[in-house]
């Protein structure tokens, strides 16, 4: 464990909690892609099945349980409790175009052709593109609430910190996981355009809105 990984995990946790609080406090999930949240719930479920088979640390286990719990709570709030506020018309990204190729890729390119390992690989690939329905929704409506942009920023920051963590681990632990690194870099690149808008607009006190 190094400081970049720890702050990355905490940034991830902050993102998840910001989103839950936003929905809970405003009693609304307007502007939030339920599809992205379902994809994240699938990501955590398929990745953390090793909760049942291997113990790494108390930190590792508790974070996994918290991530999974929060992911399902978010999906519940969007599709059950506050479903009347869910903007399904704008959440029109075709997720099958992500899940099917990602599933195929996980079967083809993995570290080990075993059930758990293929699910882990699937979750890594899926996480790298799971935010696309959310970004698609923002580009479609042309705007995002400021709190939603804080959520996205924390999520992107988590990915960027993980890259620094991998550089650290490569130099100091001679550790690298090519699948995680390639998928992680792809995922971080997806946030670059958003980072630019966040810094030039949101941090200067303006609402994030895109030119028509």
């Amino acid at each position: 464990m190094n400081i970049f990984r720890l702050t990355g995990d905490l940034s991830h946790l902050a993102a998840i909690i910001i989103l839950l609080l936003k929905i809970w406090k405003t009693r609304s999930c307007a502007g939030i892609s339920g599809k992205s949240q379902i994809l994240f719930a699938i990501v955590f479920t398929t990745r953390y099945l090793d909760l049942l088979s291997s113990f790494i640390s108390l930190y590792n286990t508790s974070m996994k349980v918290i991530y999974i719990g929060c992911a399902y709570a978010t999906v519940y709030l969007i599709y059950m409790k506050f479903r009347a506020t869910y903007d399904g018309n704008h959440d029109s990204f075709r997720v099958e175009f992500l899940v099917v190729p990602v599933g195929g890729l996980a079967v083809l390119i993995n570290h080990d052709f075993s059930f758990l390992e293929i699910l882990w690989t699937f979750s890594i690939y899926l996480e790298s593109v799971a935010i696309l329905p959310q970004l698609f929704m923002i580009s479609k409506t042309g705007e995002a609430e400021t709190i939603t942009t804080h959520y996205l920023f924390c999520l992107g920051l988590y990915r960027a910190l993980y890259i620094v963590n991998w550089i650290w681990r490569y130099y100091f632990e001679a550790f690298f996981d090519l699948i995680a690194i390639v998928a992680g870099v792809v995922q971080t690149i997806l946030y670059c355009d958003f980072f630019y808008l966040y810094v030039t607009k949101v941090l200067k006190g303006k609402k994030l809105s895109l030119p028509a």
Partner: peptide, 10 residues
């Protein structure tokens, strides 16, 4: 690096 090591990252 041993790529088959347990996945210790989150």
């Amino acid at each position: 690096a041993d790529e088959s090591a347990a996945h210790d990252e989150l």
